[in-house]
Design a binder for these strands. Sequence first.
RNA 1: CCAGGGGUGGCGGAGUGGCCAAUCGCAGCAGACUGUAAAUCUGCCGGGCUUUGCCCUACGGGAGUUCGAAUCUCUCCCCCUGGA
Length: 391
Amino acid sequence: MFSFDIKARLSHSKARSGIFDTPHRKIRTPELAIVATDAQLKSLPNEMLHELPNPYFIVNTYHTYTKEIIPNIEKRGGIHTYMGLEDRTIATDSGGFQVFSLGFGRKHKIGKILPSKEQYLAIGEDDSANPIQITEEGVKFEFDGKPLELNPEISMDLQHKIGADIMMAFDECTSPLNSYAYIKESMERTHRWLDRSIEAHKGHEHRQALFGVVQGGEYEDLRKRSASVVGSKDVPGFGIGGSFGDFKEALGTTVGWVTDILPDEKPRHLLGIGKIRDIFAGVENGVDLFDCVIPTREARHRMLYTKKGRLYLRKLKHLDDPIDPQCSCFACKEKIPLHQLWDWFLAYDSRATTYMTIHNLWFYAQLMQEIRESIEQKTFFQLKETYYKYY
RNA sequence: CCAGGGGUGGCGGAGUGGCCAAUCGCAGCAGACUGUAAAUCUGCCGGGCUUUGCCCUACGGGAGUUCGAAUCUCUCCCCCUGGA
């Protein structure tokens, strides 16, 4: 269980394809996890989940905890039966990301990827009035008026209850606005939290794979330090989190510092990354697993993924054609015309976002398969060229 | 025919003498979205320009009052609600 077999490697690159054996499925890598924050996909009825082509999903511990979904998951005997996905690999995020996204990130209305240097200078570092208190012990916050707490032990306990195949160690995701000193301090705390996560996970190793998470922001020395500390732990795989630099091209380089040091024979999951260019950059730098809200969120925002790039439904709303005649998703197979999707959208008919979500998920499933095959057939760089024309 | 209430930008609907080219919502146009507080958010949205400003045309039509009117008066047209 949790063996990782690398099937093919690409020369002049760190890219590899492989098979990660998890209790519910052997997933072929590279693969992207679809984000099901509340143990369900937004805009998609649970009954339809098992009809999706995607083999890998990720559920959020923070949200299932605060919304008290976990007891229901337990009652159904775990996340796989709860979601009706007995034959898929499911991961859980630790809740650590919310420390950032609901704390510092929300205060500054910023994601972990910095939009521009100007914004950085305009905002500066200011961590006052962070609604979430972070200490060595863990994190205290309020939800719906009631005080709650999250720390490595609590996160592990909750993730055990959810029962996913892959779990993430409890970490803190820092912002590009944080100082070097803060990112270093936070990273070291994340390392200590990793030891506590591993300790709290004892006895569950056969059933659930705990991934240690590498942090260190955009700094080479911190990333390398984190990779060597986290990489030395006896865990079956690794997450790579945080921000990767103040311009998008830095992602590959930053990830590369980490994957050079992490044990080669274990899988790496690049947390929360999923733009198409970034997937290619990640794969090229030795990433095996990804997860991202982009396919689902953008579908709800009427952005359709096709081989010819991202398409605004708004601009195609008069067309009688399906989204992509080559695609085999439900929307395209049923030849649902673009104008119909638009009419549904205007009428607040959920079929609009449901079909668009399904389409984008199909697109990403297909993309990941093409990437795997291209590594095995040594055509990865041609494939990358093709996609870079439109993405 | 009488009484009352209305007619505002593509639509809905504010405004009732100057700060009104006119709040706001919808639709329209452009963009964003990376371990999901997101079917969300941002910008534009009468026309033209030398676009932190200027000019033109505009709040049913016309005529007035006034330094100044979408806002007041008169008149005409149209719509709605009661009553003959």
